[in-house]
């Protein structure tokens, strides 16, 4: 029983582990110059030397910016996307504006935001916001638009108010789509936050990576990159776990009449 459950997980681990072993071996055997690619062992060593005292404050700075930008984008994105799905007038107004900003790579706003706000906290939060808002708006719009008309009519015929219709019928039904949009947004958040920190910031993991790179301290640079990649991966895993958990609740909620 247990083996059966563990086996697929072990299969997933097989090739990454082999890859790391090949990497370690080829650096030790001298096939690869460790100046250009430090071995996993050397990278771990560099991580240990930096320790939590150096890494945690930078990690916290990066995650804080991402969290603020992502949160504002999630709220604004869901509200705007819903409004556009419900009101064709709002859609007529916002759609052309959003469609024309959709094509622009969001990291390009970084220099503009530096012009506006100088170096520091706000340019990065703002670029995270811009990058996250669009996928949330688009997926919310689709989610709400695709709620079956029959469900809306039956809710209305039961005398549900407009406000309740939105909060307890439309929004829960659109939640699977909205969460997919938010997962995409989370990926963008990490990308633009790191890019922003490399360009303008004085703190954060992106800045740390870049300054180790410019100083030529390559094992430390690789170590911070590894920390960042692990954090981004775990954030994605946690968000997916949250989606699974949340949607399971939603399914149960449907049969018992749906919650807020």
């Amino acid at each position: 029983m247990l083996l059966g459950r563990v086996q697929p997980f072990l299969k997933q681990l097989l090739s990454p582990v082999i890859l790391v072993l090949i990497w370690e071996a080829s650096v030790r055997l001298g096939f690869v110059d460790s100046e250009f690619l430090p071995s996993p062992g050397q990278i771990l060593q560099a991580m240990r030397e930096m320790g939590a005292a150096e890494l945690l404050p930078e990690l916290a700075a990066t995650l804080f910016r991402i969290a603020i930008g992502f949160f504002i984008a999630a709220v604004v994105g869901v509200l705007l996307g819903s409004w556009m799905a419900i009101s064709s007038r709002a859609n007529g107004f916002f759609y052309p504006i959003l469609a024309s900003t959709y094509a622009i790579p969001k990291s390009s706003f970084i220099p503009l935001f530096i012009l506006w706000f100088g170096l520091g906290f706000w340019p990065i939060v703002l670029v995270v916001f811009i990058a996250c808002a669009l996928p949330v708006v688009v997926y919310t719009f689709h989610g709400i638009s695709e709620v079956p008309k029959l469900r809306v009519w039956s809710a209305l015929s039961f005398g549900v108010s407009r406000r309740d219709l939105f909060w307890s019928v439309l929004l829960p039904a659109a939640m699977p789509e909205i969460l997919v949009g938010m997962r995409i947004a989370l990926g963008f958040a990490f990308t633009v936050a790191i890019a922003g920190e490399m360009i303008v910031s004085t703190t954060g993991l992106g800045k740390l990576i870049f300054s180790y790179g410019e100083g030529g301290v390559y094992p430390s640079m690789f170590a911070v990159i590894c920390v960042l990649l692990i954090v981004a991966y775990v954030a994605d895993l946690l968000f997916m776990a949250f989606i699974d958990y949340y949607l399971r609740w939603l399914d149960r909620g449907h049969s018992s009449g749906g919650g807020a």
Binding site: K11, Q12, L13, L14, S15, P16, I18, L19, F36, S107, G187, F190, T191, I194, A195, M198, G206, I209, F210, Y212, G213, Y218, M221, F222, I225, L228, L229, A232, Y233, D236
Partner: peptide, 26 residues
């Protein structure tokens, strides 16, 4: 599939911009 698929699912969500300094080094 056994070799490639886990690498794809691990690599897909990672923020690749973090690798820029490595590519500049190489």
């Amino acid at each position: 599939h056994l070799i490639v698929s886990p690498l794809l699912s691990i690599g897909q969500p990672l923020p690749k911009v973090a690798l820029i300094p490595i590519f500049i080094l190489w």
